[in-house]
Design a protein around this nucleic acid. Structure first.
Lengths: 225, 225
DNA sequence: CGGTGTGTTGAGGCACATCAAGCCAGGTGG
DNA sequence: CCACCTGGCTTGATGTGCCTCAACACACCG
């Protein structure tokens, strides 16, 4: 579950086209404001600078599935054709850098290393989604929660992280990401806490107490149970 | 659920680098032979010419998840870093065109339209995986089967297809793709047949009798039940 | 013929969903 | 300051869809 962090691939720090040209600029989103909506024309990609967003789809019958959360360094808006296939909005106050699609494509013609970088973003997105599919297909509720928290822990800094980590989304968001109900999320969070694997100091945060046991649960490693 | 068909994007028919240079050539795989294995170095992408392959992951505890089937026109081997993250093998006798990764990257530097084409392949893969996530997250068993059959129908030719269509994978493969068991797959196939939505003339094929009702089920459109 | 592999069908159990009540922090107004 | 409301979260009781286990059907093959 690697990030689609743009800095991870390029040896030389390559700037996105708007960074220097100033074409796109930065957008500021208050909590729950939309970055884009399903059906809108795909005019831009967005690099998250601070805050967090969620991308989701609503079914005709009302069911909702969150397909991705994105955090600083991530790019959103990628896996779409001429129109966006999902809604995307902010979880908290969020700043994004706007990367106009057309100017990016134009810039790509002159700077082939940009294309490689973009392909790397795509690869990261594919990897994340493959892992999500694995999770949804084969894991139990507690394994899903464990996987999710592990990913969140890895995203928010050093992998041995034992400090308090932010959990900016509500239980309903987690549930709709993991294919569970809020009750099941809640029950299994509590279960992980009573197993002394995590702590839940307050609503918006968590803390890993045993990274090793969290990892074992998340990766379906049943060698030690 | 669009295909990642390479012909779908480019206005001008752009050849993959090996097609003319003859560097990669074609590989022939007997049924169930491996195209690549998890952990192998990512040396090439493969364009399916005929037949079909499956890409899957085996968990430490034995659970298996198929993350993709690929058919003629599809590219596999894309969403991987330096090593392949999954096993990939043939369902039936399969011919693939080998596209060496390095020569593709080299060719991309001279021909920017190749990069766009490759990005389009990536986009297709992301879309397919997003749809798979939606399916695994929120759909019931019969809706999953319906979605799967609908995708298969759309892949194998004209969308109004009423003729007999091939189903080259066994029940276990379908089950491991949809996050179900073979029994549940079997039961719901039978159910779709008794609902007169499909026919099952023999093991390796199916036939759509009511494309409209299949679509309604697959897209969770509960307006008419 | 029996043997094997694949698919179907049936009976029962279990994990998660559903429904419902209660907890707790934050906000609002008297 | 407290009374009350509200929304997010937790906890409990019950229901159900899919899994598990088991038997059987059928084609293929030696």
């Amino acid at each position: 579950m690697q990030q689609s962090n743009i800095a991870s691939s390029a040896e030389t720090q390559t700037a996105w086209p708007n960074e220097d040209s100033g074409l796109g600029g930065v957008r500021l989103l208050p909590p729950y404001d939309a970055l884009f909506r399903e059906g809108d024309e795909t005019v831009a990609f967005y690099e998250i600078l601070s805050g967090a967003v969620r991308a989701y789809k609503i079914f005709p019958d009302g069911r909702r599935q969150i397909v991705a959360f994105a955090f600083p360094g991530d790019i959103v808006g990628f896996g779409h054709g001429d129109t966006y296939r999902f809604d995307c909005d902010a979880l908290t106050t969020t700043r994004v850098r706007v990367i106009h699609k057309l100017s990016l494509l134009r810039a790509m013609r002159d700077r082939p290393e940009l294309a490689e970088k973009l392909l790397d973003v795509a690869r990261g997105e594919v990897e994340t989604l493959q892992d999500l599919s694995l999770l949804l297909c084969r894991k139990t509720a507690i394994e899903r929660i464990a996987s999710f928290l592990l990913t969140m822990a890895r995203k928010s800094g050093d992998p041995a992280a034992c400090e308090r980590l932010p959990l900016p989304m509500c239980r309903a968001d987690i549930a709709d990401y993991l294919g569970l109900t809020i009750e099941t999320v809640s029950r299994n969070m509590t279960r992980l806490r009573s197993l002394r694997i995590i702590d839940l100091p307050d609503r918006g945060s968590f803390q890993v107490r045993s990274m090793e046991r969290l990892r074992q649960l998340a990766e379906c490693d049943d060698t030690t149970h």
